[in-house]
Design a protein around this nucleic acid. Sequence first.
DNA 1: TTTTGAGTTGTTCGA
DNA 2: GTCGAACAACTCAAA
Length: 474
Amino acid sequence: MPTLVWFRQDLRLADNPALQAAISAGDSVIPVYIHDIKSEGEWGPGGATQWWLHHALIDLAEQFNKAGSPLIIRQGDSLKELEKLIKETGATSVVWNRRYEPLIVKRDTEIKTQLRNKGLKVDSFNGSLLHEPQKIKNLSGNPFQVFTPFWKNCLANLQFGTPAKAPKKIQGPTQPVSTVSIDSLKLLPKIKWDQQFSKEWNPTRAGAESRLAEFKKAPVKDYNEARDIPNIDGTSRLSPYLHFGQISPLEIYTAIKETPFAETKSGQRYIAEIGWREFGYHLLHHFNHTPEKALRKEFDDFPWQPDPKLLRAWQKGKTGFPIVDAGMRQLWLTGWQHNRVRMIAASVLVKHLLQPWQAGAKWFWDTLVDADLASNTLGWQWAGGCGADAAPYFRVFNPVLQGEKFDPQGEYVRKYVPELAKMPAEWIHKPWEAPAEVLKAAGVTLGVNYPKPAIGLIEGRDRALEAFKNLRNK
DNA sequence: TTTTGAGTTGTTCGA
DNA sequence: GTCGAACAACTCAAA
């Protein structure tokens, strides 16, 4: 009797426990993807991730065609579609790899119960984490709220084999199963905003593999420094592949562990980044209000000053702080923003501009190809100083100093903010302080073709420190 | 049981 | 220019 393999954020054939289990069961295997945005509430895939998903599904379908069992695509309520498929195919068992977003956990638990009540064999697996959140606890039996002890605990308890290779041949159903086209899911954006995306990304399994291979053999010993320079391709850029499970953290971990890089400071740093992803899932699981509300309760009445105009300026890369504007335009243009710049842009939005971190999180959610609820929530609460192991309130990034430190020649700014292309390095991160003749020579008129800073740096910093200090005194 | 030290990513100020 | 201290409060593990 056939087994349905319900694909979600595990769009790969290799190292896929649910798929493996279905194949081991010995009968035919029917892979299915159900597009069910309604059940995801506020956190259905954003625009950029939908673009990625479109291409990832095409790629996955090709791989299944080659293996001999075509990928079935459906749209609508997950349970209803699964039930229809069970009826149509005579499947007696359903398997999937687990997801961890609060709403999805609720939905999937319900589906599992319903299907089991109907007599089906249903199993779920861990396909996307080194450690599932419910398994990691501190000595008092509580979830961790600080990264370092969390990660030490994880490293001390690593238990897994080598990732399974992709099956070459999969036995498909004897009768064709009805499916809809990937195009009919309408995942591509209506406005032509994604033109640059395909130049920047290869959203396929092959893309993930070549990126990992490249990262492994590159002069990775410099990762610790290079990863902080936005104008250098010094990070692995595997985040979007990880989000959709085109590659698994176990595959990455195993591949890195085979290299001498793994034992270096840089290598450990990189593996710890996988750890931060795990920590995000840990926090999301144990504190499931955090996508919407701060982990720390006292932040419920933080005096944010929501201002649609300021938010808009930030989103469009028109804050007047060159490093922030470059980052926000890189995001819009390429669906991705360098990690260092994410921190600077987030800090400026939350601290200098006093915009609620949730507004920034929402924008990132819609525009990042690697948008992932666990990591996005952790990142924004970290920047806002309101989460677990967050940046201390007094750590206010200075966008000028950060620009000068991590983009000393201003190349990153010049690449994404062409208005400033002719500014000399000395002034490019603080054009408002540049002498009139320098501005003139560079063709920059502040307030005309490049904005004046949205707030004075000292004023913004002091205002933020004051707000955070008052919060503490409550 | 209590105490102690350390903890992703920074900035400013004063010596 | 360089360097250390100060800028909280809390979590967690080890002593």
